[in-house]
Design a protein around this nucleic acid. Structure first.
Lengths: 332, 332
DNA sequence: TTGAAAGCGCTACCAA
DNA sequence: TTGGTAGCGCTTTCAA
């Protein structure tokens, strides 16, 4: 015997009502008497009926789907598996989606075919899309095709986005090092093309200027190896460094390894502060003092806004960051 | 003016053919002359037509969607954002999906409402589902409702799964430590409920037995804090330990921190080998020698099999693991 | 409050 | 090789 999945017609028949009425009850729409309501509910339970989401989406034109579009900076997806940021985004989105029984669809825009992915997702017209690491021009392209979109980093002005006080965070990190008595505070920055990295650089520069310290800069490209290399170079060029601000924890972990390997003690010789508060911070040895970026909260807010349909062109939400003190730059 | 998205009917009209023919061309189905083919393709390009996936799915009954079901061991999704394993699964699945333009949907089964999620996804009947960390009884429940499923860890016999040589990997880790001259090799294990953890424990025990070494065991629950705690305890109870096998890198990073904090040198005093080769291994200081679990490849294989429809009850694919030597247990 | 029926956009079968 | 057309399962007017 073939076990067909019950449809709304089966429910309607068994309850002795029309499909329309069954639909009303199932979707909790006003017009239906209480008697009929409970009868239908009973049948639904008996038959184990579950609405077909596909048919529902087709008929209603709406969809309980949020797209997550991740831009891949390099070919190969190694970074996706490696960078702690992405899974935090997922962790932030899931509870929100669960609560409204919406679903998450994941897309990756490779550097080459990225425009195609952007177009496809935008035209698919779901409840909305969350953009991660998507460069401004592509974000704009998406926004031009579909308004229901939020970028997880500051991007083109018109594109809705959640943002964090990156500059203030970097400033706080440097201030913390200064409070610890450090006077030669260097920085390892992220890529200039990344707005978070740019803001953190601004914060660092403002801090050293305000504190009357020399600015000592290096670049690490937001990857561990880059942090390692930059720290080594910094140590070689400026042997008197006693504090280091690293623009992300992944680079921070690399810097810590380099500094230790160079025979210096952390935090005694060099105190290190990272940024993000990701797994890379807690796995580092010693664990990194860092500036917590509330990625989960930011992703959750973006998702809610999309589901609520409250995003408008230029929409912005700002999040505060917070210094998390660990052993790489101990308490004052 | 209202910009309606072109449908297949628009394409058919503009090309002067029927919807059926347009559909054939668009889906690359045999019956259609080359003349008509190129004409339709031209119109598709001109109109910027893109098939509506929803309608397509409803009409055909198939769907280009793979579900990823992640079981949440604890309430709150912090582990999702923290454990490096999950993003590696994503990284492994995405390229496969991309190549066949299928999409990924993510679901999280919380410990309480997990059965409901399992049922929903199973009944939604997509191309298939990849199960991550789903306990045997729930995996069986899923399999009973929907055959198109692959577990990313060994589970109930009938449930299709990809598996890795966890026992052999642990054995190799211990052998490596032995080759390095270590004779007091302890282990920090994962939760007994996890089949990978169980297999790694078996491997460790077999190795110390074969090598004629004492078995010194502790549990760390597959989290960093657990590794930290276990290492501290081990050091206190067995001060003569000179080698440590840790069943996952996250615990390994914690163990490294504890050992260093206790004033011992790694690898000189205690050599450490982890398992997984995740970001936790590379961010640790010193970086962890570890056993690489090919998570990406495993996830990719599971996804392909699902898309190909080649999984059958009891289906299995075994993956080999490989020792990756880093500084926490240097080359022999 | 209820039901009939017209789609949503597409696929797949059957006939031509 | 083509076109006609009956659905896929559901929502949503419009009348009753």
């Amino acid at each position: 015997m073939h076990h067909r999945r019950p449809t709304i017609l089966d429910v309607a028949r068994a309850a002795g009502v029309s499909r329309a009425t069954a639909s009303r009850v199932i979707n909790n729409v006003p017009g239906a008497s209480d008697v009929v309501r409970s009868r239908v509910h009973q049948v639904v339970a008996d038959l184990g009926y579950r609405p077909n989401e596909i048919a529902r989406a087709l008929a209603s034109g709406r969809r309980g789907v949020v797209d997550l579009v991740v831009f891949a900076p390099d070919p190969g997806l190694s970074w996706l598996g490696v960078h702690p940021y992405y899974s935090r985004v997922l962790a932030g989105m899931m509870p929100v989606l669960d609560g409204r029984d919406a679903q998450l669809r994941v897309h990756v825009a490779q550097a080459d075919g990225s425009a195609a992915v952007i177009d496809t997702v935008a035209e698919a017209a779901t409840a909305g899309a969350v953009l991660v690491n998507v460069p401004p021009e592509l974000a704009l392209r998406f926004h031009a095709r579909c308004r229901r979109v939020v970028s997880l980093t500051a991007t083109a002005d018109r594109v809705p986005a959640v943002d964090a006080e990156n500059a203030a965070g970097a400033y706080a990190a440097v201030s913390h090092l200064h409070r610890l008595g450090r006077r030669r505070i260097a920085a390892v920055h992220g890529p200039a093309s990344n707005s978070c990295a740019a803001d953190r650089r601004v914060g660092y520069l403002a801090a050293v200027r305000d504190l009357g310290l020399p600015g000592i800069n290096a670049d690490g490209g937001f990857i561990r190896e880059g942090g390692h290399r930059a720290a080594l170079q910094l140590l070689a060029d400026h042997p008197d460094i006693d504090g280091l601000f690293v623009a992300c924890d992944l680079m921070g972990a690399g810097a810590v390894q380099a500094i230790t390997a160079a025979g210096r003690k952390i935090p005694d010789d060099v105190a290190v502060v990272g940024f993000d508060d990701s797994i890379a911070a807690t796995c580092s040895n010693p664990p990194l003092t860092t500036v917590r970026l509330p990625v989960e909260e930011m992703a959750a807010e973006a998702t809610s806004a999309l589901l609520d349909g409250t995003v408008t062109p230029g929409w912005r939400r700002m999040f505060t960051v917070e210094l998390v003190v660990r052993e790489s730059a101990g308490p004052a």
